[in-house]
Design a protein around this nucleic acid. Structure first.
Lengths: 258, 258
DNA sequence: TGATCCAAGTTGTACAGCCAACTCCACCAC
DNA sequence: GTGGTGGAGTTGGCTGTACAACTTGGATCA
């Protein structure tokens, strides 16, 4: 169970790196209440022995848990369990479909419009394209258990958009097929604020024009930093909330003047 | 410049750890455009030599930049500059005052009400107190350049609240004095959604009752995981937006059913 | 010309060790 | 009892080494 040292290419495909397996293991243990709420984790040394890895690997795993807000970490004392936090995967944030399923709702999607046209200057900047490059624009109405919940307007560069255009018009998920086709999502930047419904929003969501909506804009890139999509979602009030964990060690959240 | 190995307690107080200094250095270099937008960073080895540190330390610094969404990072190729993102400090997220100044506005605050009373059950849970423990509740109206912008309702456990109660009633910042008194903020969990103004909100902010507001609730803890404050801020529409960076490596953001 | 292959370069993962800084508790002196 | 001291235990920070996995571009070959 702990023979080869620098492996990862042998057979254990699933979770890949040891520290990820360890992190997953610890996450599960915490979620199951093995250490109790507010309880203390074993020392790094002890974990290293128990899992037959080096202390460095243990620390790597714990860094992940720390970033997710599961445990504290301060010099001189053992780590304390902060919460049994629901760690949502990166993927669940990109895919409305995936998210809906994870909370036990039935996702739905109706594609209202797909167009391919030259990008305007601001769109070029968002997707890092040269002026006039073609883009695909997709407009969809998303539902949770048949109830209209969100309007999704997404821009894709041609390379990605062409794949989307090839999907059936009533496909529930657009993100999953892309992943299957080899598109790798790596980073995203989300901006959350409040807007008022325009007439199109109002018509599709069945709310009053001018009524408040929660807006989430996001820019998704691949591992090389190339933009893959620029999306704007508008949720009806009361359907969604966003939670961010944040610490002195890693600050992922920032606040801006609107 | 690279003599002592395990130092940190000698003289270089300011930034503390070497990897933090390095991270700050690189962040500044990126912000100044030294590597260009979309440019490539020097290799880890080269940075290690240039700064006279080990590769491990360089990697630690780069991990910080990666979590902040400043650079990509993939096996086989050099890191690419993603954006010159202004990384806001953790502190700027906790302190309205600090934030206002960082965006060049004049922060203002008027304390409307301070009370000390036994906590109700839900409050006890948020602050991890035993039933009936005393808490301080502070209600404040915050302004940006004299314009009402946000309503802040904060609960403090007795230990912290007592310090707040000792401040002058017209103090602009409450967070900064606490830091000066030795209170250390380490982690925060923020939840962002949309609410409708109640009559108190409407009266203080000068908006219509029932009008939409952006709500940010946050729970702040110290390094040991002890809750220090539970706060609910309600912003007028159009005054603020929240941005989160998020990657497959570290997922700090999650989405919930409201 | 065009596809294939290889080698250099680069990051990811893991190991081992060392010391500093800090927390916490038991013990002791007063 | 009270306060201080010291030491064991624990995490933070840094160095060094080794190899695996991957990207990229140039050389080679059909």
């Amino acid at each position: 169970m702990a023979k080869e040292s620098g492996m990862a290419g042998t057979g254990g495909r699933a979770a890949g790196a040891r520290y990820r397996q360890l992190a997953a293991d610890l996450r599960e243990a915490i979620a199951s209440g093995a250490y109790g709420a507010g309880g203390r984790l074993p020392s790094e040394e002890e974990l290293a022995q128990r899992y037959a890895v080096s202390r460095g690997t243990v620390r790597q795993a714990l860094t992940v848990l720390r970033a997710n807000g599961l445990v504290t970490s301060r010099r001189g004392t053992r780590r304390v369990v902060l919460g049994t936090a629901r760690t949502q995967s990166f993927f669940e944030l990109l895919s409305f479909t995936h998210w809906a399923r994870s909370i036990g709702e039935e996702p739905g999607g109706r594609t209202i419009d797909v167009e391919c046209r030259p990008a305007d200057p601001s769109e070029c900047e968002q997707l890092a394209l040269e002026p006039g490059a073609p883009i695909y624009r997709v407009l969809r109405l998303r539902t949770l258990s048949r109830v209209p919940t969100m309007i999704e307007r997404t821009l894709y560069p041609e390379r990605v958009g062409a794949m989307i255009a090839g999907l059936e018009t009533d496909a529930v998920s657009h993100t999953e097929p892309l992943a299957d086709l080899g598109v790798v999502f790596a980073d995203a930047e989300h901006t959350i604020d409040l807007v008022h419904a325009d007439t199109e929003d109002a018509r599709l969501l069945g709310c009053a024009a001018g009524g408040p909506l929660i807006r989430e804009r996001r820019r998704v890139t691949d591992p090389a930093g190339t933009p893959l999509a620029w999306s704007e979602d508008r949720f009806l009030p009361g359907t969604v909330a966003f939670t961010v964990h944040n610490s002195v060690a890693t600050t992922a959240l920032s606040r801006r003047r609107a």
